[in-house]
């Protein structure tokens, strides 16, 4: 076990604060650097064909070109709009439906089986139906993301509510609190860790689905950009798009995690050794 402030590489030795910061940076950079070296090496030594995989240097150069030309910003802006709309729609519907199923046995009987059957269906399998219902413009792309987010958030909301200590609800009933008051004052706050975890997972899934959504008659968006680059064997562009999605995904996850920590600041949770 390594306690906080102790070196991972030199366990048992307490380091000065400045060294600890450097050490943190080094620890975080070790795996990405190792991956970059493995990537470069596998292309250089022909383990993967250069016709399909560009080197990190080529990808960095391409990324730089795409940033300077403004092409990347245009694709990213389009994708972020789709992701945000789909996430908000699916997240809000997931919390609402999940809360209803969580508090009402009738709702569980009415909706539970349908949700259980539909949840495992891969969201991409909905594409032909979404085209028929919502056409080939923005709506079908947003709905595809929303469907994926919806099921994850619903499942986590139901689970969160159903794991609330029954005694808290009984105390509220003794104080003559209404069902709405119990939901808003006790169940939802107590289920918040699970709901926020659902939203965080939903956001991650949203990025995955964005790529699938942008296969529907798109001509802009970072997912479409990757698809188009793969279609026309442009590995520089394809990997630059993948790096871009990775960075953006990590950034949105960081924002979500910060929001989660802020909302759950009352929690005295285990933060790792």
């Amino acid at each position: 076990m390594i306690s906080a402030g102790r070196s991972f590489f030199l366990p048992g030795r307490r380091l000065p604060a400045g060294f600890r910061r450097v050490q943190t940076v080094v620890e975080r950079a070790v795996l990405p650097i190792a991956l970059l070296v493995a990537w470069q090496g596998s292309v250089e030594f022909g383990l993967v064909p250069h016709t399909l995989i560009a080197t990190p240097g080529e990808v960095a150069s391409d990324l730089f070109r795409l940033i300077l030309s403004g092409a990347l910003a245009e694709h990213v802006a389009v994708s972020l709009r789709r992701l945000l709309a789909g996430f908000c729609l699916g997240g809000a519907a997931g919390i609402a439906v999940g809360s209803w199923i969580g508090v009402s046995r009738l709702a569980q009987r009415l909706m539970g089986p349908t949700v259980s059957i539909l949840a495992p269906v891969p969201p991409t399998a909905w594409i032909p139906l979404l085209i028929i219902l919502f056409g080939i413009r923005e709506a079908s792309k947003i709905w595809l993301i929303a469907i994926g987010v919806f099921f994850v958030v619903t499942a986590n909301t139901v689970s969160g509510i159903r794991h609330v200590d029954r005694r808290l609800v009984e105390v509220a009933r003794i104080y003559d609190k209404s069902k709405l008051e119990i939901l808003s004052g006790i169940l939802l706050p107590a289920a918040m860790p699970s709901i926020l975890t659902g939203l965080r997972l939903g956001l991650g899934l949203g990025w995955i689905l964005l790529v699938a959504a942008e296969l529907i008659a798109a001509n802009r968006g970072i997912g479409w950009f990757i698809y188009d680059a793969r279609n026309f064997s442009r590995p520089n562009d394809m990997l630059a798009g993948m790096v871009c999605i990775g960075v953006l995904g990590a950034a949105t996850d960081f924002l979500m995690l910060s929001f989660q920590r802020h909302v759950l600041r009352w929690q005295d949770a285990f933060a790792g050794h």
């Binding site: 594409i127 032909p128 139906l129 085209i131 028929i132 056409g135 080939i136 296969l215 529907i216 008659a217 798109a218 001509n219 188009d228």
Partner: peptide, 18 residues
């Protein structure tokens, strides 16, 4: 021109979206 693989093109064509 909207980029669609045949299965999606079929759905769009038959539902009058293109």
């Amino acid at each position: 021109m909207v980029d669609m693989a045949p299965p999606e093109g079929k759905a769009a064509f038959e539902s009058g979206k293109v």
